[in-house]
Computed example of a mutant assay.
Amino acid sequence: MIIVSWNMQWGRGVDGKVDLQRIVRTAQALGDFDVLCLQEVADHYPGLDGAGKANQFAELPELLPGFHAIEGVAVERNTPGIGRQRFGNMMFTREAPVQVLRHQLPWPGDGTQASMPRLVIEAVLPAPGGAIRVLTTHLEYYSALQRAAQVERLRQLQAEAGSHARLPPQAGQEGKPFETRERNSRGVICGDFNCDAPDPMIARLQQPEGQMPGWCDAWPVAHPGQPHPMTIGLHDHQQWPDGPQCFDFFLVSADLKGAVRRMEVDAATDASDHQPILLELEL
């Protein structure tokens, strides 16, 4: 299974052009992905440079025929003079998901800090050896308080999934909302975590929650002893004047560490302010 994750900045490259076709082409060139996770997808946001009134939640599926499109709308508002606006994440899967879950992340008030609602998409996908959960998210940037609360929720989600794995099927519920669907501890979480690799939040995310296998940073699993590659600030020096950092991660559940075959970062592209990342699992 090959997974690509990318904060695409609503398709806006360092050249200032918004080009969703370029985003898809670049992701496809990185790897023949089974799952594509995108952060910062916009619908009707003329206030974002170059985004205009386009509905990217509708445009992106047209560029990825044959994939199952999953919307993860974190922000949905009606704005006077503009109308309905949506912002969030998307996931595209080659295989039809067993089930899709959307988890709104904590959003405690934090004084005058700019912030927005945040969300996790979780797709449970069929795979050899049992289903695998792929989650993608985009954590808070400005508020450390909110980001810390969101990290705690990501840890809790791993424990919650493990508790579902122990549940017996509910008899007589086939085809109904109460039907039991597979969900277990085997998972991958990816996205823009908005903090650098040495940040305590990345270490906190990897601490186990209860008795369930916790999250493990996939980069040192694939590249022992090598520093994390930079995923922001390589090309866009205007938005990131402090220089490159690593904000984008893959984490795997501890029971999937042995399945990690490679992880790569496309450091060459400037189609976004972030670099796309790839994880390959042998399942």
Score class of each variant (00 low, 15 high):
residue 117 P to C: 07
residue 278 L to V: 07
residue 123 A to L: 05
residue 240 W to G: 04
residue 90 M to V: 08
residue 20 L to Q: 06
residue 39 Q to P: 07
residue 166 R to V: 15
residue 184 N to Q: 08
residue 145 L to D: 02
residue 179 E to R: 11
residue 195 C to D: 05
residue 93 T to Y: 00
residue 163 S to C: 12
residue 51 A to W: 06
residue 214 G to Q: 07
residue 99 Q to C: 11
residue 247 F to T: 00
residue 83 G to D: 10
residue 17 K to A: 14
residue 25 R to N: 08
residue 96 A to I: 12
residue 151 V to K: 03
residue 14 V to N: 03
residue 62 E to K: 14
residue 3 I to P: 01
residue 164 H to N: 13
residue 154 L to W: 05
residue 77 R to P: 13
residue 117 P to F: 06
residue 8 M to G: 01
residue 221 V to T: 09
residue 163 S to A: 14
residue 226 Q to D: 12
residue 225 G to Q: 07
residue 266 D to F: 02
residue 113 Q to G: 07
residue 46 P to T: 09
residue 188 V to W: 01
residue 184 N to M: 04
residue 254 A to N: 08
residue 143 S to V: 05
residue 107 W to N: 14
residue 282 E to Y: 02
residue 266 D to G: 05
residue 25 R to M: 08
residue 86 R to S: 13
residue 243 G to I: 12
residue 118 R to N: 01
residue 206 Q to N: 11
residue 275 Q to M: 11
residue 149 A to M: 09
residue 109 G to C: 12
residue 263 M to C: 14
residue 152 E to Y: 03
residue 105 L to T: 06
residue 192 D to Y: 00
residue 114 A to N: 11
residue 82 I to C: 10
residue 176 K to L: 15
residue 259 A to L: 01
residue 209 E to H: 10
residue 122 E to Q: 15
residue 120 V to G: 02
residue 75 V to S: 02
residue 243 G to A: 01
residue 177 P to D: 10
residue 163 S to Q: 14
residue 39 Q to E: 10
residue 57 F to I: 12
residue 54 A to S: 13
residue 87 F to Y: 08
residue 79 T to G: 07
residue 218 A to F: 04
residue 197 A to R: 04
residue 26 T to P: 00
residue 210 G to C: 09
residue 257 K to R: 14
residue 217 D to V: 06
residue 139 L to E: 02
residue 38 L to M: 11
residue 94 R to T: 05
residue 218 A to G: 02
residue 49 D to R: 15
residue 220 P to M: 05
residue 281 L to F: 00
residue 17 K to E: 14
residue 173 Q to K: 12
residue 176 K to E: 13
residue 216 C to G: 01
residue 90 M to Y: 03
residue 270 D to G: 09
residue 173 Q to N: 13
residue 221 V to S: 00
residue 170 Q to L: 14
residue 93 T to R: 03
residue 100 V to M: 11
residue 127 A to N: 02
residue 258 G to M: 00
residue 89 N to G: 11
residue 260 V to C: 00
residue 173 Q to C: 14
residue 127 A to H: 06
residue 219 W to Q: 01
residue 167 L to E: 15
residue 119 L to N: 07
residue 210 G to A: 08
residue 227 P to K: 10
residue 115 S to R: 10
residue 178 F to N: 15
residue 189 I to M: 06
residue 128 P to I: 00
residue 128 P to T: 03
residue 276 P to G: 03
residue 176 K to S: 15
residue 90 M to I: 03
residue 21 Q to T: 15
residue 46 P to L: 12
residue 48 L to G: 05
